[in-house]
Amino acid sequence: MSAVLEVTGLRKVYEGGGRRVEAVGGLDFTVPAGQLACLVGPSGCGKTTLLKCVAGLMRPTSGSVRLAGEPVTEPPPDMAVVFQEYGRSLFAWLSVADNVALPLKEKGVPRARRAELVRRALADVGLSDAAGAHPWQLSGGMQQRVAIARAIAYEPRVLLMDEPFAAVDAQTRAELEDLIRGLWQRLGVTVLFVTHDIDEAVYLGQRVLVLSASPTRVQDDLAVDLPDRRDQLTTRGDVRFTELRARVYARVQAAKRGERPAPDPSAPPAPAPR
């Protein structure tokens, strides 16, 4: 299957106040169409910088990002981003339904089709009853569901998620993880999921990319060979889950200690697509 997302030699250097900080240093990876890939790394490792470059919200210092072969220089029309700060990424003055509908309106989707997409997306995230509410009338987990509904209603080819569940409680987080797996399986969208939570990365992904400490490189790239049907109880109790988690954990610890990946990573094992 062809790569829908290609990141080649991506570097981002911040300069200012006489200081020069290399946040992302020479990053290469590709994501095949339809894959759910998780990026995990030590905190402060430049994950958000990387994601912003991929989303076209920030220009890399060098290197390139390609979406379906086209270079990304500005936010592309077939990509959606779900941010960590759900409370700040929703329009407090618009109703839930209007929040979901706004990008579609701007995209020029006809009214009837728009209404249908909004209705379906809200049903998909279990918020059909909240269409008329304002975001601040909902709990944190429900607000993040609104942001997810807005992203899937947009019908993107690639869905980027920047630590989307870092700010919700553990139970809500488990529910949202299952929601994302369910949506991904049903919609066939490519998902790039950034997280600092190792368990979450292994539980969600078909593949986990472990990032090094800043300047970020790919430290390890492993396929998650767990069954496609996963649930919070049996999957997390699975021996294979524990092994994978241990491996990712060891790599993240190595990254924290500052160990660098091998200078020439001999073609990382391309995980089998779904």
Binding site: L57, A80, R88, K105
Partner: peptide, 22 residues
Amino acid sequence: DPVLADTCRSYRISGFTRLRTL
């Protein structure tokens, strides 16, 4: 809010709609 501004950019909301809604 910069996060909301980024949200608008990523959904390509610009011009008059951005002025009015954001």
